[in-house]
Design a protein around this nucleic acid. Sequence first.
DNA 1: TACATGCGGGTTTTT
DNA 2: CCCGCATGTA
Length: 845
Amino acid sequence: MTEPNKRANPDLSGYQPAAGGIAARARASAAPAYLSGLNPEQREAVETLDGPVLVLAGAGTGKTRVLTTRIAHILSTGRARPAEILSVTFTNKAAREMKLRLGQMLGQAVEGMPWLGTFHSIGGRILRYHAELVQLTSNFTVLDTDDQIRLLKQLLAADNIDDKRWPARMLAGLIDGWKNRGLTPSQVPAGEAASFGNGRGGKLYAAYQERLKVLNAADFGDLLLENIRLFREHPDVLRQYQSRFKFILVDEYQDTNVAQYLWLRLLSQAPSSSSSSLPGLTRQSIISQEDGSPGRDASRRPGDDDRTSGDVAAPSSPPKNICCVGDDDQSIYGWRGAEVDNILRFDHDFPGAKVIRLERNYRSTGHILAAASHLIAHNEGRLGKTLRTEDVDGEMVTVTGAWDSEEEARGIGEEIEQLQRQGHKLNEIAILVRASFQMREFEDRFVTLGLPYRVIGGPRFYERAEIRDALAYLRVINSPADDLAFERIVNVPKRGLGDATVQLLHDHARKRRIPLFEASRLVVETDELKPKARSSLRGLIENFERWQVQRNALSHTELAEIVLDESGYTEMWQKDRSADAAGRLENLKELVRSMEEFENLQGFLEHISLVMDRDGAADEDAVSVMTLHSAKGLEFETVFLPGWEEGLFPHQRALDDQGRAGLEEERRLAHVGITRARRRAKLYFATNRRIHGTWNTTIPSRFLDELPQANVEITESKGGSGWGGMSGYGPSRFDNVESFGSSYSTPGWQRAQAQRKNGGGRSGGGGFSESGASYSSSPRRAPFTIEGELVAKSTGTDSDFTVSDRVFHQKFGYGQVTKIDGNKLTIAFDKAGEKKVVDSFVQRV
DNA sequence: TACATGCGGGTTTTT
DNA sequence: CCCGCATGTA
């Protein structure tokens, strides 16, 4: 123990089992097994079933356990049946985890929890039941970001808006933001609506929503926003759900946004028979000018009465049994519309709420916990918890300075190998980065070391081009009005239906207000298209018509196989010679395989975009590499945290956009990172890092200064010659590095070279990949091959060139040798500039 | 219509 | 440095 045992919540210390009520009844017949092993706070959180409860659960305090046990408790005391419990999580991972644990606790009864899922999947499900009430049909498509952008691009083009000046991405961001805040087009404040496209932002939002209805589609935000609209405009529907859900549980409450909050508010009301309209849901007042103001927290303070204006529980309708679990110190999704205030103001929103703090940490050692606690204490505006552990102090948190990101990766690689030699499981090791571009360096390093690793997060399975193409075919079959899907595959594989054809179809479709697929049918009957295009399009339509019929006769997996085959899509990749073609075919197989889990095509398509995140086979022992954000909720024995530098972590953009609030969110992210570790937390910073291709000198993160000395050890980089080490890391120390011009003469590069010579045996190591790329302009693959060659040769004898030799290179022409390292030359080419090449690629002249 | 080449611009986190 | 986009060419 390094932290004093402060009782931040005195009223808990006098906890006594409540007399009477469910708790007592449950305990009466010797407390059920599932309650044993809970500490008093956890137990109270589980047993306080009536009225609103907020559980403030710090990192590693058994949050999931409380949630699942609470459900078990509700069920076993007979307070509700499985279908009467609404249990929402933020991520699919969390939902899966809960189902798993519930299953373990209850036997196999998990199937009977139909309302356990993410906000989005549950919102989507409700929406499908009542699709007609929001101008959709139940087979509507869920658009992902990509579809969204393409659609917006079309709208911008139709409006003659310059998408250079007003990018579709930006509009998508705005619309998302509005939807996160629960704003329909008419509710967007005029000022904000005018901020895009010379005042046309609001109009575009409205047009976009209209277009979605025509396409029978909804985007992510709609799954909640349209749900709210549904509840508002159809109180009878709302009432139905209000009375169905006897208990509501919410995980990660600190991550909920306004829309999610409103949705929960609506559902958590006791059903009232009279209220025909629910006033005051707009919450216009929270729409403060987030831009420019130092932070959103400045615009809303606890005590403002904006959010509860109309829909506060009327005296006659006490709030439901809602239990929210969260940790304000782990709120890291503010950029996505999450409102920390939701958790900060819980007792205000749900009067009479019981607040329970879980502060006993069962995960980390004393040093780790102390470091994390001390760091997060620098934040203002927290509810305040003091985590404590009964574990040993353990190893100190280490801070290691590396010269550059390459050395950082090398150092971490060596530490991992060392741990591995000591018998530690790679599965228990993680590297958590701030931004995904950091991952590549580690991947490169691990590949050369032959160290098994897995990247978590990455591009989602269903975001891969081949998966999206395949899905597009299925979408058109399922919902012929899905123009986006149709457009995507109309010429994939190439079948001679290019821009001109698509344009023609668009014209027809717009004139007659029909989907592209419909328009195609008509156009094929005319002679507007050239014979070749015409017969090609006819073939495609006939295919789809046939598939639509076959759908009823075949299983959906068979159908998918037939579609992929007959459309020529599989063949397209089989013919493809590029490196990743095989992987893509494999992915397509995986897609068909994954379809088996679903009842039918419709069910599959409903879920694919929401729950199809691949968590790769975890059976292999491998190091995990992921972002800090995706690490939330996970834990590892050893955690490496590279990149603790100003500008990267805290990220410059967070600082620029959100000011102090942004900084605090970054600090919470740091807190999340450290608390992922059970036994070892190892922080790194590099003095030089490459950003957009050029090297920059960086300053160690201020977060490092905020760590408590007593629990932190400054170590030397294992990767090299005692660079960063020493206790005095700080801005001044590295300020006077010699300036550098091209990337090849940077200190980092030079050092890497020195390293390589000293390092002896180890084969080359990264750092030459870019020279490889210089040899060949052919895409992909080539650089790798050449890199291999470089590495192989680099251990050889020194080159017989000398500095200032004039040389000739096939591709770059004439130049002069400026530097030599083994058989690798740095050459200043007369035309092509400075490049690194292997000596065998040039000849003396 | 399909492909190649050159240009400018943007780069955090994700349901 | 990598991407998408626009332009030009077979």
